[in-house]
Amino acid sequence: MTLAVSIQQLQCSRGQFRLGPVDLQVPAGARVAIVGPSGSGKTTLLRCLAGLQAPDSGTIQIGDTIVDDGQTRLAPAERHVGLVFQDGALWPHMTALKHLRFAAPGLSKQDALALLDRGGILSQANKKPGAMSGGEAQRLGLLRALAPAPSVLLLDEPLRSVDVHQRDGLVLLLRSMCDERNVTSILVTHDRDEALALADYLVVMRDGQLVEQGPSIDLLEDPQTAFTAAFLRGAACLSAKANGNGQVQTPFGNFPAPDAAKANSDMRLVVFPGETTADEQGEGPEAQILAVTPSEGDGLRLRVACEDQIVIARAATRPTGATTRLRLTAKPRLLPWHNHATEPQS
């Protein structure tokens, strides 16, 4: 497998925040998304990769070239990467055509116009960013990053400043242009939908550490940590305790404890939306109704509060007017013990 990017033991501190150590390998041609909440370190990681921020230690290799290892530190322009900024970061005094020709010194006018045409903004060739819509500006940001033919395209929340109705077009353009040019793309975002739309492989980060990584479908179907389950699928994470008898006591009943679980240790019980039902006769924990909305399938979709967590549940019938509390029935999962250290505390 040819690697487009290889990061080893990367560490970077900025004020109180510390990133890493991070190890990450991205195969050539892959579409990777680094996801996590604000302050998780994903943007710092991207900036280190781009050469906009100097790491404290570690090695970054792009293709066959070591671009940063403490002794060697290549400038951003020498790394053969392109970066699409979240707000476009366009040059306000240049037209779209000049953007491309300045970004790629060898690009002829014809080629630049063809690129603009490919990006669907040929009509904006002689306009400055101030005269473009958010979607057009972001398309130009993408074309500018791709114009010098980089081997790796870095994307910093590229859909954030784009109107909802323009997002699909930009997603399709991004994916198709990366495929055409065989460019490896690395996206950072805190938006699950953006990540799933633009990437096939997810890397989940929290507090400067990689929590979990894998193909998108695997992480969605079978997350290995409660944090990933909550972040990617909106799962509720309920508190649970292991007793000394090899059982874990939960509001949904007792479960066999993982082998390494110690007595009285905190654990997480993960409840996925769609796998939980709510009714008045159930035996599960009690929950308070917060909102009732129509479900996409049969029945109703309920948002209920259970032990300080919001759980999405299904209900076959509409609760009667006087009913404010229901009981939940679910197939919760107790996640492997060794990952609990990085899970949310509440």
Partner: peptide, 14 residues
């Protein structure tokens, strides 16, 4: 002026 726009300039091979 946008700092990000200046950072974008650092990727230009000029």
């Amino acid at each position: 002026q946008s700092i990000a726009a200046e950072e974008a300039g650092r990727f230009v091979q000029r």
